[in-house]
């Protein structure tokens, strides 16, 4: 049996939950078994996980799971895993998933790969699974040999697929310890897709010259339904908020489309973005290193090009 932990912060599923269930269904097919989804804490509508391929959906509605605590989450997932006899446990490679995956592997005495980028293949009883290493400069194939193996799945590595139908969720009862963590406040930007989940990212660097110039970047992002990001010096000088900083010391992302505006493409910046599926670079310097990592490039002044590109996208959106 393949157990998928479907994360539902503040009662709502994230895209990573649908990706994990879609992936879990495929792993279950590979192993000739079923995929079961588990949700923790009060959740809006768990039955939807059936449409992504979960055969059963279990919910542990315990209010103490409303806020994340790696100890309680580990206990709940490990107990469910033992009750159900899971061979593989799948989580999203999110701040929650990453904080639980290592604990689970220790508690279950199993194998672990964090940040898997594709489906496993079988090697006898073992699983071979790939992830990127060295900040995107290489791929490592791991061989997992545990009786149970834990996989955290990189965001945007699979596309959520609704192939099945909803299944009624069953309530699970487990005795949980009490939490040692007291969450005081959760501050989130509502209405924007967080960077690690974004499919399109519009990012800008020091070439913007002044924080007051960001309007053209935001307009482009709005047209595309994209999330905005920035290079490190831009965040360091408080031109943009710190959570927009991508790269080696910021967030690592892998959107389908990354549009880099006035960013030189230093190796530390590339380390966080070079796994993007398609990269578009706009820079006035034809020698900017970013062009070497780009799929499409536009050499010229961003202050002219970005509004023009925005108009072109608007025309496209109107026609499609």
């Amino acid at each position: 049996m393949v157990l998928v932990f479907a994360e539902s912060p503040r009662g709502h599923f994230k895209k990573s939950a649908f990706e994990a269930v879609t992936y879990g269904k495929k792993v279950a097919e590979l192993l000739g078994t079923d995929c079961v989804a588990l949700t923790l804490g009060p959740v809006d509508d768990a039955s939807v996980l059936g449409t992504y391929g979960a055969k059963r959906v279990l919910n542990l509605p315990d209010a103490s799971l409303t806020h994340f605590d790696s100890q309680l989450y580990t206990q709940a997932i490990a107990d469910a895993c033992k009750q159900l006899g899971a061979q593989v446990v799948i989580l999203g490679h999110t701040t929650t998933g990453k904080s639980v995956a290592g604990r689970l592997a220790v508690r279950l005495q199993g194998g672990l790969i964090s940040g898997a980028t594709g489906l496993p293949v079988l090697a006898g009883k073992n699983l071979l699974v790939e992830k990127t290493v060295f900040s995107g400069k290489a791929v490592a194939q791991y061989e997992l040999s545990g009786a149970v193996n834990v996989i955290s799945l990189m965001g945007n590595a699979v596309k959520p697929e609704q192939t099945g139908s909803a299944v009624a969720s069953e309530t699970l009862t487990l005795a949980l310890n009490s939490s040692k963590i007291r969450v005081k406040e959760v501050k989130t930007q509502e209405g924007t897709v967080p960077l690690p989940e974004a499919e399109i990212v519009v990012s800008a660097g020091r070439g913007m010259k002044d924080p007051g110039n960001w309007g053209i970047v935001e307009d482009l992002a709005t047209t595309l339904g994209a999330t905005t990001a920035c290079s490190r010096p831009v965040a360091d000088s408080h031109w943009r908020p710190h959570h927009e900083h991508v790269g080696q010391t910021g967030i690592a992302i892998r959107p389908n489309l990354y549009i880099a505006i006035g960013i030189s493409g230093a190796i530390q910046h590339l380390a966080g973005v070079n796994n993007s599926k398609v990269i578009v670079v706009i820079n006035k310097d034809p020698e900017a290193p970013f062009f070497k990592a780009a799929d499409y490039g536009v050499v010229g002044d961003l202050f002219e090009i970005v509004p023009r590109l925005n108009e072109a996208f608007k025309q496209f959106k109107a026609a499609n």
């Binding site: 592997a105 005495q109 199993g110 194998g111 672990l112 790969i113 090697a123 071979l128 990127t132 290493v133 995107g136 400069k137 290489a138 791929v139 490592a140 194939q141 791991y142 061989e143 997992l144 040999s145 545990g146 193996n149 670079v281 062009f291 070497k292 990592a293 780009a294 799929d295 499409y296 490039g297 536009v298 050499v299 010229g300 002044d301 002219e304 090009i305 023009r308």
Partner: peptide
């Protein structure tokens, strides 16, 4: 432990940038 790296590979090289006229 229950995991080990069985193989490393380098990602395929990018095909090279396609330059588009700014106009």
């Amino acid at each position: 432990g229950f995991e080990k790296v069985s193989q490393f590979t380098l990602p395929p090289a990018k095909a090279g940038v396609k330059l588009i006229d700014p106009n």
